[in-house]
Design a protein around this nucleic acid. Sequence first.
DNA 1: TATGAATGAGCCTTCATTCAT
DNA 2: TATGAATGAAGGCTCATTCAT
Lengths: 195, 195, 195, 195
Amino acid sequence: MSKGEETRQFIIEKAAPIFNVKGIAATSMSDIMEATKLSKGSMYVHFENKEVLACAAVDHNMKVLGDKILMTVGKAKTAKEELFAYIDFFNNPLNPPVIGGCPLLNFGMEADDTNPVVKEKVNGGIRFTQRVLENSINKGIANGEFKPDWNAAEFSTVIFAMLEGGNLISRISGNNDKMKIIVKTLKSIIEENTL
Amino acid sequence: MSKGEETRQFIIEKAAPIFNVKGIAATSMSDIMEATKLSKGSMYVHFENKEVLACAAVDHNMKVLGDKILMTVGKAKTAKEELFAYIDFFNNPLNPPVIGGCPLLNFGMEADDTNPVVKEKVNGGIRFTQRVLENSINKGIANGEFKPDWNAAEFSTVIFAMLEGGNLISRISGNNDKMKIIVKTLKSIIEENTL
Amino acid sequence: MSKGEETRQFIIEKAAPIFNVKGIAATSMSDIMEATKLSKGSMYVHFENKEVLACAAVDHNMKVLGDKILMTVGKAKTAKEELFAYIDFFNNPLNPPVIGGCPLLNFGMEADDTNPVVKEKVNGGIRFTQRVLENSINKGIANGEFKPDWNAAEFSTVIFAMLEGGNLISRISGNNDKMKIIVKTLKSIIEENTL
Amino acid sequence: MSKGEETRQFIIEKAAPIFNVKGIAATSMSDIMEATKLSKGSMYVHFENKEVLACAAVDHNMKVLGDKILMTVGKAKTAKEELFAYIDFFNNPLNPPVIGGCPLLNFGMEADDTNPVVKEKVNGGIRFTQRVLENSINKGIANGEFKPDWNAAEFSTVIFAMLEGGNLISRISGNNDKMKIIVKTLKSIIEENTL
DNA sequence: TATGAATGAGCCTTCATTCAT
DNA sequence: TATGAATGAAGGCTCATTCAT
C-alpha cells in the first residue's frame, strides 16, 4: 500500500465513526481534520470533496458491519445457530457493533430524500444483509434443520426489519428491554420452524 | 389565537416538512424563510433560535402523525380492525402519511447521539404509538376478540418495530414489496391470536 | 434611496476602482471588505456573489466614463470642438479619467475569452462611445462644418481604435509621447475634413 | 538541450496559451499541471514560482508573435508590401496568430497597474513591434518607394495603435467589420505616401 | 409584530508552495 | 530530474443570530 493509499485509509477510518455518529450534514471537514490531526489541504489531496469522503465513510462503516456479521455468523455450526448468532449480534444497540449504531439506519434515514448516491449504497447494504439471512435459512431447509415450506425470503425480511425497528426503540429509549422482546420473538419463530 | 400565535403556527407548518425531509442539521433558517416568505428577523421574533424552531417542527410532525393514527384507528369498529387499520396506515412508506416519512425514524436517527432534547421527544412519540397498539390489543382481549394470553405489550413492540424496519427497507429500495411481506406477516399473527 | 440601496451603491463605488485596477480575477471579496470596512457577510446581503458585484463594478466604471465623456463633449460648441474635446479627454492615460484606466480596455481584455457577460457589457460600452463620435461627425456634416462625404461611421472607429491603442502604449511605456502623436494625427485628420 | 531544459521548454509551450487566454491571475499552477500532465513538484523543479513561470510564458507568447511577424514581413519584397503584410497579419483578431489574442494587449492590460516586471516585458514587445514598422518605412523612404518627408516614427505608432484598438473592438464585438475599416484606412494612408 | 441590514464565525474548497523519497 | 503527499493561508460563500427601525 502506497503512502497515499495508507493516508487515505487512515482518514477513512478516523472519519467513518464521526459520520456515523453525527450524520453527513453535521460533520464538517474540520471535524475530520481534528480527528486525523492532518491539515485541511491534506484531506483534499486524498478526497475530491466532502461528498466523496462521506461516501467512502459510508462504505467503510457498512463494510466493517458486514465483515463482523460474516465473522459472527461464520462461527456458527448449524443454520439455526447462524440465525441466532445474527440476532444476538444486534442484541444490544446501546453498545453497537459499529460506533454510532447501524449505518444502514443512520445513513439510510439521512439520505433517503436527499442523497441518491448514499441511498443506493445503503440499498446494497440492506440487500446484502438480507441475503446472509436468506442463505442461512435455505441452508437449514436443505439440511433438514428447518421446515421445508418456510419462506426464506420473507423471514429474512422479517428478521431484518424487526431488528432495525428494535434498534430505533432501544437507542431512543436508552434501554434494551424492547430489544429483548424482539430477540425473544424472533427466536421463538425460528424454533417454531425448526424440525 | 393572536396574530403572533397565528404566525408562529404558520411558520411551524411550513417548516415541519422541510425538517422532516432534509433533517435538522441540513435545514437552514434561510430554507424556512424561503418557504414562509417571511423575513429573517420574523423567524426570531417567534423562535428564540433554530433549535427551538426545530423542536417545534419535530413536535408538529409527530402530532400530525399521531392525530392521523388516532383518526384512522378511531374509525375501526373492532379491536382487530383497529390493528389492521394501523398496519394499513403505514402500508406505503413511498407515499407516507407525513411528508418526508416517519418522523420518529427520521429525527430519532439524527438525534440519538447528538440531540438529547429531540431524542426525548421522539421517545415520547414511540411510547405513544406503542400505547395505541397496546390499548387495541387489550381492548380485544377484554371483549373476547383476542386470545386472553396474548401479550399486548410485547406484540405492540413487534408491530411497531417491524413497520419501522419495513419503512427503512421500502424507502431505501424505492419499492414496496418488502413492506407487503411485513404487512402480511403481521396480519397473519393477529389472525392467529383472534378467537 | 433605501438604506440597503445606499449601502449597495456605496459598495459599488468602493469596489469599482479596485476591480478596474487589479482586474476581476485578482480582486478578492476581502479586498472589497477592507475598502468598505464592511463585514464579509454584508457584501453578500447586497450581492449574490462576486460575479454579480464584479458586473456592477464594470457597469459603474463604464457609466462614470460615459458620463464624463458626455459632459466633456457637451461643453463644446461646434462639432469640431466636440471631437477635439473627446480626443483631449483621453489625452493622458497616465492620469486617466477613471482610476485604473479605460474600463473598456481593462475588462475587455480580461473578459474576451472567459466571461461572456462582462464581454457583452463592454461591447455595449464600445458601441456607445463610437456612437457619440459618430453623432458629432454627422452633426458637423449636417451643419456644414465638415466635408459632406466624410464617412462618420468609419472615422469614429478610427478615433476610438487609435485612442485605445495609444492608451495601451502610454500606460505600458509610462510616458505620453506616443499619445501626443496620436492626438496630433487625429486632429490633423479632422482638420483635413473641416471646411 | 538537456532533459531538464527540454521539460522546461515543454512546460512553457503548454503554459503560454493558457496564461494568454485566462490571464496570469486566473491561471493556476494546477491548470498548467493538467495541461502538461506533469506533477506539481515538477513545475517547481523548473520554475521557482508561479511568477517566474508566468514571465516565461509572457516571453514565449511575445517571441512566438515576434517571430511570426518577422517571418511574415520577411516574405515581402518591397517596403510597401512589408507594411501591407504586417497589417494583414493582424487582420483577423477572431482567429489570431497567437492563441488568446495579442499578448501585448492581454498582458499589458493585466500588468499595467500591478506587475512591473511583466509590464516592462510588454513594453519591450511594443517597442520591438514599432521598430519593425519603422524600419520598413525608413527602408521605403531610402529606396524611393515612399515620400521622403513621411514620419516613420509617427506612422509606426499610428499603425500599431490602430491595430491594437481594432483588436479590442473585434474580439469584443465578435465580428471583424470594424477591423476591415481599420485595415482599409491604414492601407489608404500608406498609398497616399507611396510615390 | 415585522423587517431586512449587518455581523463574524465557520463552511467547503483551492491556492501556491515545500519536501522527503 | 521527477514525484506526489503535505501544508496552511486564503478563496468565495453560508450560517445562525442581532438589532435599529
